[in-house]
Nucleic acid binder design. Sequence first.
DNA 1: TCTTCGATGAGA
DNA 2: CTCATCGAAGAT
Length: 216
Amino acid sequence: MSGSSPLSRLITPADPIQGVCQRLDRAFYDRPAEIVARDLLGRLLVHALPDGLRAGRIVEVEAYLGPGDLAAHTSRGRTARTKAMFGPPGHAYIYLIYGMHHCMNVVTGPEGSGTAVLLRALAPVQGLDASTSGPGRLCRAMGVTRDHYGIDLCGDTLWLARDEAPAPAEIAASPRIGVDYAGEWAAKPLRFFVPGHPAVSRPPGKSARKLAERQS
DNA sequence: TCTTCGATGAGA
DNA sequence: CTCATCGAAGAT
């Protein structure tokens, strides 16, 4: 944490970060996944690369509530893959899905809780030219791979931050995507997104179930 | 060791 | 709707 933070370079005409930009600290992540998930909407994901910073504003996430949640990878216990998800909060849980796509989660709650939030879509802010809608494309555009498995998000490579942009006026919830196998857990409204935002990966259809709620 | 299949995305 | 593509998990 030096005085000349690279965060100053985030200020752009296209989507200016307003005033002070501050890295989210450990305490932010050390809360229940569902709380962290909602609080992550509107925050920034930042990756420092040799050729500059890439940053996007989070507009869609999903909460995974631990071993009791049949849709969560930690529901099958502690394995090599889920080691990071069972680890301390504020670290990245990243996995390869369908042999070709990476998905990035932020680990939440106390160490051992096995809870995390999947980042599903970003609104481009800086250094992003590919699509950032959908968990696989988000990682590809941000340059996130399993090399970042377990990385400390309170460090200076890959981190999340808050700025002075207003929080989303509204947050919508829906069932999580692609977890139909999870029994009653498949229906729980644990996907949160900014309703109507163009970067959201799957805009709700007419019959899609949606719960709009007020944000803090 | 063998088999199955997934917290996806692209394309017909 | 299909299918690419591979590691983790469960079955054997």
